[in-house]
Design a protein around this nucleic acid. Structure first.
Lengths: 120, 120
DNA sequence: TCAAATCTACGAAAGAATTCGTAAATACAA
DNA sequence: TTGTATTTACGAATTCTTTCGTAGATTTGA
């Protein structure tokens, strides 16, 4: 039920773009070392698992994500908090913030968010 | 180079306890459905990969983590931000905070941390 | 001492995930 | 029309991860 890493990459594209042909997904994630049919196969498997739905009315099938983005992200997040951060959400968050990846703008966003949380 | 999920669980124990025999790890993670030799094998593989070091001077070998906790956690975190949150640290953080898993205390911790960040 | 318990080593099976080759169908354009 | 492109379907190979059985060594304690 939990998407694999590759499936996650594909879902990412589908969530962003709404709907895509296999080729669009393939080109969006231009992974140097994977062939077109690999992505095709993965998406077919995802279809079997009902992670995506597809419109087969024309030759080129059009895929759409069929699982909830936030729910799926949360699933990964919780797993990660458990196995990587020993159950501590705050440690994860602080590490994410101390990270070079978090920009000033992002930190401001988070402050606003915390204030909102507080006022409830 | 990146630990697998099982390896991560074992590293977790080693990071927490400092050093352990296989049996200690086995008991700490008491997974109902995995045998002792499975954990042993995993730890032997981790040794081959130099993820852990071990003292073999007595019959019962004693293992210690040989990779950096923070660095390894960051590796997972960054991967996750990319493949699950489309590169957005703030989205990950906000979702973690909105999560049932983040308690009041944890949120306070994070506020302090943000203030510290600010004063630098 | 010797048997039971505990440990390591190691190969191999089982399971999961990824990868791709090839064939057949369809569309497209010269 | 005819051949080139693109697409799907699908089986099979490959690779990665997890699992365990068995054998042999060591320790322990009755």
């Amino acid at each position: 039920m939990k998407p694999t890493e590759s499936e996650m990459e594909i879902l990412q594209v589908l969530w962003n773009k709404g709907q895509c042909s296999v080729r669009e997904v393939f080109e969006t994630l231009d992974k140097k070392d994977v062939g077109y049919t690999t992505i095709l196969k993965l998406m077919q498997i995802m279809h079997e698992k009902k992670m995506v739905i597809r419109d087969t009315s024309s030759k080129t099938h059009i895929y759409t994500a069929n699982i909830n983005k936030e729910k799926t992200q949360n699933q990964f997040l919780n797993k990660m908090i458990d196995t990587v951060y020993n159950g501590s959400t705050s440690r994860l968050v602080m590490q994410a913030l101390g990270n070079h990846k978090a920009s000033k703008e992002e930190i401001d966003l988070i402050k606003d968010y915390l204030n909102q949380l507080e006022n409830k």
